[in-house]
Design a protein around this nucleic acid. Structure first.
Length: 918
DNA sequence: TGCGTCACG
DNA sequence: GACGTACGTGACGCAG
């Protein structure tokens, strides 16, 4: 006969996790119930779905009764930093007690102690009574309790945590976890710990000395001087922390163990509770189909109410079927769309199929060009004709009353346009919604979003196409499998949309999404489709010239080095320079222990007169230019258009900037004459010129505005020289040299200044750099305030916002590690400025097509964006008319959303090539 | 795949 | 007084 098994649910911990993981659902009365739903579903699962050997015989939910406990007597700052629960979570606490009662499960809480203490007391009492115990929690404090007969269950990850897991996680067994936790401290609970001691150090110390007291007794034996000092200074904190994390395990049991017996969930109260809050999926699981059908479901669509069932996805093979889906989409007023193609290159990909979803769990795939067999033997499977399907879908795609949803819709927009779909509007993009909500917190790819927000990981593309190497093309995937994969993507997109859309207003990012990022999609799609003309033979000529130079330098380098080696291998180069040749003090070695051979190091050697260093630098420059630019760009020319089509990533950066890839056209050389030749290979089409329009010092202008520095604003208003002003203010005189140094100082402000960094850039010592910074701040006190306020805002919210309301999350601002935290502080300061500049140029791009059209400039095309620069291809006849339109559009791009107290300067140049347009 | 390096704003 | 040190990207070659 199997043992009795008590499950102790850590209610508080679970509620918070459910709240953050689930979308903001509301019940029919408008009460928020997302966390209640998550909690109820978890309890249901626990009671009904565990296999016999693990099934609970006894169950209790433990909650925190109040925020003041006996630990506050020990330390009044305990948990003092904890923010109050979010507004819409507060009304859910009583509902969770209702839920527990509806299951006829005891709900235990007690003033003056924490849920963890009650759990500890019950766990040990039950163990003594020969129960098995499972603690449903992922709280690290509770892991102290794990021992034979007691384990932890993380229901979110569906993972059991036993002794071995604890050892793997903490480096010590459960009975020593409390000692490790005490040394580490906990910033959330405000357990002081020992400064500078993280999980690794704490584990090492406890492994060596057994306990906090053991460490204290052996402080003198600790090798690292810094650690020894900190520990010696923190003995009181360490002892206090040890007591704070110690669980109180002898609380009298408020409800005797016998009363925790789990009875089969009584249907009536539970059904009533589920119906009241609209939890239809659970009602049907309870066998209450009728009530499920009648209940008003939770609003905001609970995406995880509906399971993912691949078999439910439909393959569309006849027109009547297709028409039914189109009718469904039209009556729903909303449809998720996804395309399957032969390539990730949107400008070359051809269409294989289209999937649609009209509801969570209701999705289909319309295969168009799937084949059976390979190569010449490939035979097209019976499917609907592409032209017929496109003709039927076009009215839906253009229907203003039907919202189209996509994930990275720019891709689909381009592919579909190339296959006869002129319009896809109105639309929402889940990738961009996620970006507006969570930029800087995580990536915005569909698989990650699905796993994170829906708790479901979609089928991986490479699993469908046969292994890592992609044995097959997606065209050869069978229709059933293709449907499982493709329809699931549309289904996931549909479900993600509901959750994101509900958060948009609440989290105040509607403007950035609706007026900046979303309208940019068709604009960028057009730019990518236009592409830019590249002179292939010019590139080939450069490649050949670089090749000769590389070969020559290679010979000379090997000669000096006394033998051949791979110059491109930093490892080998370092060994040659600093070991074989014995060059002096090539000290710097990094994490891998290898010699540093970067530009600054080689320049130092060159300055000391080592010819080999100069030659290696030269070799590096030539091989960089050849491999990354002249060779690679030739290969990127699209044979159909004879132009290069970059791909702009709209949700890749943490600050709101775009990024460019395949190929990256935002890092084409310009700073050196040698590299600049590559820019001359970017040319205008016959009868056109290239026009480059740059914002002048936009980020520094924004600093002047945001930090409200009167002197800087005046200089910008009067068209003066800001670097000259800075030179005058900081150095007291204006010379070529002081102006150059002032320019560096101004840049350092944008990046979040540090004396060390500035010293390195200026080649001066730290003290001097610190004096300049002090002087700068005393001259422009607004800047110091602005930086402090930005950092304070980041610490309060975890993000900073641009003038347009874009959020840039900086999660490391909460790091215990000082280096990481300072890094986050600099990133926060920079993100406001960099992000606002990104918003401005994005607004310019959104408004540009309309401005050009309104001026009758139908031949002028926007081709590229390089952060503060836009590149256009302009017919010769339109050059003089286009210049003022582009200038005005860019200079006024912030209006009417934002007011600026400085003007935005725009510099415009034209020429036959990009190199000539600057 | 991770690292070092270097191209850009 | 020590810590590590500018902000944001993408692509390449090497070596495990």
């Amino acid at each position: 006969m199997s043992k009795q098994h008590l499950y102790l649910v850590d209610g508080s911990g679970y509620i918070f996790r459910a709240y953050h993981r689930l979308p903001p659902l509301t019940d029919p009365t408008g009460t928020p119930v997302g966390a209640v739903y998550g909690f109820t579903a978890m309890l249901w699962k626990l009671i009904t779905e565990l296999a016999n050997a693990e099934a609970p015989t006894h169950l209790a939910v433990i909650l925190d009764a109040g925020s003041i406990t006996f630990r506050n007597d020990m330390y009044d700052q305990y948990k003092a930093n904890r923010p109050p629960p979010p507004d819409d979570l507060i009304p859910q606490f009583p509902l969770i007690r209702d839920a527990v009662r509806a299951f006829s499960v005891p709900c235990i809480e007690q003033e003056g102690v924490e849920a963890d203490d009650i759990i500890a007391s019950y766990a040990l009492a039950a163990l003594a009574a020969d129960f098995n115990v499972t603690i449903v929690s992922s709280d690290k404090d509770l892991m102290q309790l794990i021992q034979p007969g007691i384990d932890c269950l993380d229901t979110m990850k569906n993972a059991r945590i036993d002794r071995a897991e604890v050892v793997a996680k903490f480096g010590v067994p459960p009975e020593q976890v409390g000692d490790v936790l005490a040394l580490m401290g906990d910033s959330v609970d405000n357990v002081p710990g020992v400064r500078g001691v993280g999980p690794k150090t704490a584990a090492e110390l406890i492994q060596a000395y057994g306990s906090v007291e053991g460490v204290i007794a052996n402080i003198d034996a600790i090798k690292k001087p810094k650690l020894r000092e900190t520990l010696a200074a923190s003995i009181a904190d360490a002892r206090l922390s040890r007591e704070l994390v110690r669980l109180k395990d002898d609380i009298p049991l408020a409800v005797p163990l016998a009363d925790l017996t789990l009875r089969h969930p009584p249907h009536e109260p539970l059904a009533k509770f589920l119906a009241k809050h609209g939890f239809r999926a659970l009602l049907s699981k309870l066998g209450r189909e009728a009530e499920a059908a009648n209940a008003i479901p939770v609003a905001a669509d609970a995406p995880d109410r509906v399971p993912f069932v691949h078999a439910d996805y439909e393959t569309i093979l006849d027109l009547a079927q297709l028409d039914a889906w189109i009718a469904d989409a039209t009556s729903c007023g909303i449809v998720a769309v996804d395309t399957e193609t032969t390539s990730i290159d949107q400008c070359r990909a051809s269409l294989l199929g289209i999937s649609l979803a009209t509801c969570a769990g209701r999705a289909c795939y319309i295969p168009l060009n799937h084949v059976q067999g390979e190569g010449l033997l490939a035979e097209k499977l019976p499917q609907l004709a592409e032209t017929d399907v496109i003709a039927r879908l076009n009215p839906l795609f253009a229907d203003p009353s039907v919202l189209k949803i996509g994930q990275n819709l720019k891709y689909d927009l381009i592919v579909l346009k190339r296959h006869g779909v002129p319009v896809l509007a109105p639309f929402d993009d889940t990738m961009l919604l996620s970006y507006a909500l969570d930029a800087g917190r995580w990536n915005h790819g569909m698989d990650d979003l699905s796993t994170r927000h829906l708790g479901h990981t979609p089928i991986a593309f490479k699993d469908v196409t046969g292994g890592a190497r992609g044995k097959w093309d997606f065209s050869q995937v069978g229709l059933r499998e293709a449907t499982d994969y493709a329809a699931e993507d549309a289904d996931v997109t549909f479900r993600l949309h509901a959750g994101f859309k509900a958060r948009l207003w609440r989290e105040q990012v509607t403007q950035i999404y609706e007026l900046v990022d979303r309208p940019l999609v068709p604009v960028i799609a057009q730019m990518e489709m236009h592409g830019i003309r590249v002179d292939r033979s010019a590139l080939a000529g450069l490649s050949a010239a670089y090749e000769i130079e590389i070969a020559r330098l290679e010979g000379e380098i090997h000669e000096i080095a006394g033998g051949p080696f791979t110059i491109g291998s930093p490892k080998q180069l370092g060994e040659v320079l600093f070991e074989r040749m014995g060059l002096k003090s090539g000290k710097k070695s990094s994490k891998t222990g290898a010699w540093t051979t970067d530009v600054s190091e080689l320049e130092r050697l060159a300055g000391e007169g080592h010819a080999i260093a100069t030659k290696v630098l030269d070799w590096r420059q030539h091989s960089k230019l050849k491999s990354t630019y002249t060779d690679a760009l030739q290969a990127q020319i699209n044979p159909d258009t004879d132009r290069v089509h970059t791909n702009y990533a709209l949700a890749a950066t943490s600050t709101g900037r775009l990024s460019s890839n395949d190929p990256n056209l935002q890092n084409i050389p310009i700073r050196t004459e040698l590299g600049r030749r590559i820019r001359h290979a970017f040319v205008a089409a016959p009868g056109h010129v290239l026009m480059a329009a740059d914002y002048n010092q936009i980020e520094l202008r924004l600093v002047a505005h945001i930090a409200d520095v009167p002197e800087l604003k005046t200089v910008y208003a009067e068209g003066g020289d800001v670097h000259a002003l800075t030179a005058q203010e900081v150095f007291g005189e204006l010379t070529r040299d002081t102006r150059a140094r002032a320019k560096t100082i101004n840049f350092s402000i944008i990046y979040g200044i540090s004396a060390f960094g500035l010293a390195q850039r200026l080649g001066i010592d730290r003290g001097e750099a610190a004096r300049y910074i002090d002087l700068y701040f005393s001259r422009f006190p607004g800047i110091r305030n602005y930086m402090a306020e930005t950092i304070a805002a980041a610490k309060e919210h975890g993000f900073v916002t641009t003038l347009f309301g874009r959020k840039a999350h900086v999660p490391l601002i909460f790091s215990k590690n000082m280096g990481e935290r300072q890094f986050a502080e600099r990133a926060a300061v920079n993100a406001r400025v960099q992000g606002t500049a990104a918003d401005i140029i994005k607004r310019a791009m959104v408004q540009m097509p309309g401005a050009l059209t309104a001026a009758g400039l139908t031949g002028t095309k926007m081709l590229l964006q390089v952060h503060d620069e836009l590149v256009f291809e302009v017919p010769d006849s339109e050059v003089s008319a286009a210049t003022p339109v582009i200038r005005e559009t860019m200079a006024n791009a912030h209006r009417p959303l934002v007011d600026l107290s400085i003007p935005l300067g725009v510099e415009i140049g034209t020429g036959p090539s990009w190199g000539d347009a600057h």
